[in-house]
């Protein structure tokens, strides 16, 4: 399985993602944002960070960078596109995912572990995943998911909510919502479910001696399903 991680100026989780993908068997290439074409691959990852210094709106400038048209074409042809954190923000700015990530409700940068519930398993990212609740790390200032009521209805009708913030027992409520996100949304799919954007960083949870291993569960499952 081949993957490509796009590096934007200001990306800072690109190398962590490279390490994680390689650890679970992906043959990964790092792609510079000024490139125009993608190498042949099965998965494209937009990593976390602060692309273009978060100027204008998070992800807005990266969403117009040279490589993006190739990423959009790849997604439209059914290729897997995964956006983590700033990558999620970029995906909403390109229009590949609906909605927007606003500033956290209490104006604070949040950096801690959270629990998220897997909401839908009829997709390549979470099919047959061994855990329904994952403990993952978040680190963001703009993770407060928002969309219009009409859009939310479409998202819910198509089961596009991928992950929701929850308590360790899986219950969703206000207390388990770190940033004010609508319906506790931590990750969403496009309609076809080949594009996934999520605020939590699975690449930070792949070593029991560093942080935790629920990211491993995610990547092991992803490569199994990508084959």
């Amino acid at each position: 399985m081949r993957s490509s991680v796009i590096i934007f100026p200001g990306s800072n989780c690109d190398r962590d993602m490279d390490v994680a993908l390689k650890k679970y068997g992906f043959k990964n290439h790092m792609i510079w944002h000024n490139d125009i074409t993608l190498p042949k691959c099965d998965l494209v990852v937009l990593p976390g960070g602060f692309s273009y210094g978060d100027y204008l709106r998070c992800g807005s400038i990266a969403g117009k960078s040279k490589i993006i048209q190739s990423v959009i074409d790849f997604a439209k042809s059914g290729g897997l596109v995964l956006g983590i954190c700033n990558g999620f923000q970029i995906l909403t700015e390109t229009g590949l995912l609906p909605g927007v990530l606003q500033q956290n409700k209490y104006l604070n940068f949040i950096c801690r572990n959270v629990h998220v519930k897997v909401n839908d398993k009829k997709n390549k990212y979470f099919k047959d995943i061994s855990k329904d609740i994952l403990e993952l790390h978040i680190a963001h200032n703009e993770g407060n998911y928002f969309c219009s009521e009409e859009e939310l209805k479409v998202i819910e009708d198509n089961n596009q909510i991928a992950l929701t913030y929850c308590n360790s027992d899986g219950s969703n409520n206000k207390d388990s919502n770190p940033n004010g996100a609508l319906k506790n949304i931590a990750g969403i799919f496009n309609k076809e479910k080949n594009v996934l954007g999520m605020m939590p960083h699975p690449e930070r949870m792949i070593d029991k001696y560093l942080s935790g291993q629920d990211g491993s569960v995610f990547f092991e499952n992803l490569i199994r399903n990508s084959k």
Binding site: L56, S60, T92, G99, V100, Q102, F146, C147, E151
Partner: peptide, 9 residues
């Protein structure tokens, strides 16, 4: 429409 404003919000 294309860049300066995000018409969702």
């Amino acid at each position: 429409k294309k860049l300066l404003a995000n018409l969702v919000i």
